[in-house]
Nucleic acid binder design. Structure first.
Lengths: 195, 195
DNA sequence: CTTGTTTTGTGACAGCTATCACATGAACTA
DNA sequence: TAGTTCATGTGATAGCTGTCACAAAACAAG
């Protein structure tokens, strides 16, 4: 697959270096890409599919933070990789997903030598930071009905479809809520949502 | 004041450049340093005092995200500065605070030329990102009593004192809750807290 | 001391959400 | 067709939190 089209801002030399050193890897839908506490040894560029980034707590609760799409990179792995630390989040492949793994050792060089890479990294930080802030916004200021609406809209936007195929249970998990609540809300708001 | 001690990792040449180009500024307690939607033209290094970073929503609700201490920098302003964008958060001086303002134009040069600056920026991103994740954790997985406990502990740690001097109302605002709730919880948990 | 202001305590109540228990329905298989 | 499994609907209930109303305390200043 021609991954370069996903990163048009990269200069040719940078692309060459990445192609020489990075490893392409495929994850099946549902497969865990990065687990809480795991040691990070490379940064992932998403080529195809979708990665779900979420937080787990001790009691088995989980909470969706955001999705990574083709053309994006994992900010957490970047940060961790540059400091050889472990991550605090979990990443799983939502669907069959292909990524390009760039080894840590390369990161510093790329940052120093390629302006386009440097700007890509900054851009990645910014967008993930913004995303996190909007997540905080949501849970800090909004009730479940509004959070659900936000969730559905984001989901629709991400998938490009108007019909969302997920179980109520899955939605409840993503929002750290419970199935019954989601069912009730969907029924209640459903009427308003059709408009 | 000798600010260099706060940033021992900076190489002499970098310090020189900063001294030549940065502007030192003092904010009185309560003064707004950065407002939502404001255009960012410089990055702030905290020299003295404490800056409170929080999110506001339309209805006047607010929500504390974290504090900036001497020796730290504002990640949001870095990100925004590098992209000439507006911020989504508000920063006010908790107490009388002194900062060093580094103009945007300088940022790119510093990043390219000084490894210690580059690493400082990365470190800043990482710590703020981690902080945000722990904030998400808190509101996603914990009830008000636990959030209050977390808040008090952090507050005590930041101020270095064991006695916290704030009104219940202020705590309620920071947690986007209401005074009565805080009062009751403090009374209830108080017994357990003395231990 | 008296008065006014700010902070804190308390009870009543309503709304939201988690949980339990169980019913219904839909889809698939033997 | 009957049985099985998974997804969804529904009622009852309890706990947490926000809100209102008002009382009690603490504090400052005249």
């Amino acid at each position: 697959m021609d991954w370069k089209k996903l990163f048009p801002q990269f200069e040719p030399e940078l692309i060459e270096i990445i192609e020489k050193n990075a490893v392409q890897k495929t994850f099946a839908a549902g497969e865990v890409i990065m687990r809480t506490g795991q040691y990070i040894k490379s940064t992932a560029l998403v080529l195809e599919g979708q990665i779900k980034i979420y937080r787990e707590n001790q009691d088995g609760g989980e909470f969706l933070m955001y999705y990574l799409e083709p053309g994006q990179a994992c900010a957490v792995s970047m940060i961790c990789a540059l400091q050889s630390e472990t991550s605090e989040i979990t990443a799983i492949a939502e669907v069959d997903t292909e990524v390009l793994l760039i080894p840590v050792q390369l990161m510093d060089d790329l940052m120093n030598q390629y302006k386009s890479w440097y700007q890509f990294v900054i851009q990645t930080y910014r967008s993930r930071f913004d995303e996190l802030i909007s997540v905080v916004d949501n849970i800090a200021f909004h009730n479940m009905d509004e959070r659900l609406e936000f969730y559905l809209k984001r989901h629709a936007k991400n998938s490009g479809k108007n019909v969302i195929e997920t179980s109520h249970q899955q939605i409840a998990d993503d929002l750290n809520s419970s199935r019954e609540v989601i069912s009730r809300l969907l029924k209640k708001d459903g009427a308003a949502k059709i408009s």
